[in-house]
Design a protein around this nucleic acid. Structure first.
Lengths: 340, 340
DNA sequence: CTGAAAGCGCTAACAA
DNA sequence: TTGTTAGCGCTTTCAG
């Protein structure tokens, strides 16, 4: 057989190691993969050679040969709003950190909803919310890939998901306001294309209904989560003929904007308006009046998602589908007061 | 020759496409790689087969065969502050978007500064700032990897970098304040472990010196970029015996906090204090007084970085090292006024 | 313009 | 315990 080695190949391969160590490449492979069946003496020789040559196995060759890999793809819908939210960073942070410690390669994919993704070479996919990109999820599922959806409770698909219980969270906020004697409670909602916003609105409605308070659609302000629209909503709200005495806002950053508007207008929080936010964004702590809010466990959601995915990626087992709903927690601070 | 096909292999390979199209795998490969030398008729047949079979080439096989790949690793130092900044998200967004359109795979690596990174299978590395993780950069460089550093002008290393001209940016802010007649100008700096914060402080100093205004260290407040510390600084600042008439703040989010504090204390911006921020964070637009600030082109920085890296990753060429400094732009709004 | 065949670097039976 | 060998799926000469 003719060896056609062309020039000094830069990359040292398993073969070079084998030659230097005086063993077969198989033995080297065994050492790399920590298989027990290698004589101590040989193992040392090989490890020595590896060190000398600074050999690092080619992941591509490994993956080609084994067919497996531990590449996790994080699919983030390219939705403007998602990137102006406190939550995106927290999620990325949580996912990034855990992948790092689990030795998973994180492929980050900021995607157009209609683009068709190439999952080849990926073993698991985490969808950070589903906003108009359900088709991509279905595609991944159809390919038999391990999938986990985060921040969106997907009921009608056989897929694992871990989300926050936005409905109950919103209910707890509104219940609290009601317990303080408020009846005229407004809601500034987020972008209703997101499930989170829709559920928070739903929770708001439910709480009112359960407490026999009629839902006044004039008290519901729809926004895109931006501070600008929150401001507009706040301005409308305070100039209403019959203004609400309390408001539940779908995000802390919007709630803070509402507080700002109030202050500008010479009004006081919570004297003139009780406010509850959603997120537990640290920014809520700083203003003159600390924000009462609904804490959502973002980091935990991210971690749960990754853990779940890595379980699904385990070659042998085929765990049951699990749909997790994480509880929120009402954090009472200073932005609400009982109705006089 | 005996074919040892074991069971119905799930993955459709180039071979299946070739068979269905009635051509050789070589021809299929040519079509995939858009080589011109394929008869139109065959090209169509192949493309048809690809569509029918939903064939997607294995990236691993491709990489193994060609030796090249387009995996870009984004290294983000696991520094708390970085994740509470406006800038991190913008950067990630810019990088993610461009990688997507350049068909680069983005490997996201949130890393501990002291961890040794595994670059196997990676062809290029983007360092999003260098905060205590220079060793990792040097390691990547030593391995001959294409590297680009973003948001940090690295002078003493042979590496491409693209950063914002923080010194000039800060100078422009302070010059502006001086042009309005201010002489008692304070600075609330960011976390000085970051080059950006250090440079902004430097720019502040330079501007004062160039204008023959003595630097008063009592006017310099060091923070970790958090709103909490900005608040503390602002409170100290306004109660000084000889308070400044203007302040240059190292980030918009801190500047907004300063404005809030002023308002709480019954003071007015810009009447009682002129304020310039840094970032051009959209939040700065909403308050009662729009924030004057130094706009830094974050998305552009991200894009330049990725473009640069993809040039460096080009197999043939070996471009010269380039160190880019992006200009900032002073955006004058309402938070400053001439000294009476 | 097309196809056969030799790798790319590694793993995994199967023998020894 | 070790080595031989046949692929993994694709690209790339090199002949036609």
């Amino acid at each position: 057989m003719v060896r056609i080695k062309k020039g000094p190949s830069k990359t040292v391969s398993i073969e070079d190691v084998a030659r230097l160590a005086g063993v077969s490449i198989t033995t080297v492979s065994r050492v790399i993969n920590k298989l027990p069946s290698v004589k101590e003496k040989n193992r040392l020789k090989v490890q020595d050679a590896i060190k000398q040559l600074k050999f690092q196995p080619s992941v591509f060759a490994q993956r080609l040969a084994t067919g497996r890999s531990n590449v996790v793809m994080l699919v983030v819908p390219r939705y403007e709003g998602i990137f102006y939210s406190f939550y995106a960073l927290e999620l990325i942070r949580g996912i990034g950190t855990l992948c790092d410690s689990l030795k998973l390669d994180l492929l980050f994919h900021l995607t157009d909803a209609r683009a068709s993704l190439n999952f080849r070479g990926t073993n698991g996919v985490i969808f950070a919310d589903i906003i108009g990109n359900r088709a991509q999820l279905e595609e991944a599922l159809a390919q038999g890939l391990a999938c986990v959806v985060i921040n969106n409770y997907v009921e009608d698909l056989e897929v694992d998901c871990v989300a926050v219980d936005n409905i109950k969270g919103a209910e707890s906020a509104v219940n609290y306001l009601i317990s303080l004697g408020h009846k005229k409670i407004a809601h500034i909602s987020g972008d209703l294309v997101t499930q989170a916003a829709a559920h928070r609105l739903e929770g708001y409605r439910r709480s009112l209904k359960k407490n026999n308070i009629p839902v006044n659609d004039g008290y519901i302000f729809k926004t895109d989560y931006s501070r600008g629209q929150a401001r507009a909503a706040a301005e409308k709200l305070i100039t209403m003929p019959d203004p609400p005495s309390a408001v539940f806002v779908a995000s802390d950053s919007m709630a803070l904007e509402v507080m700002t508007v109030l202050r500008e207008q010479g009004k006081q929080v919570p004297r003139d308006l009780s406010i509850v936010g959603f997120d537990d964004n640290p920014s809520g702590l700083y203003g003159p009046v600390a924000l009462t809010t609904v804490r959502q466990p973002l980091i935990k959601m991210a971690e749960e998602g990754v853990k779940r995915l890595s379980a699904l990626m385990e070659p042998k087992k085929k765990p049951k589908i699990e749909k997790t709903l994480l509880a929120t927690e009402l954090v009472i601070r200073e932005s609400c007061q009982p109705l006089a």
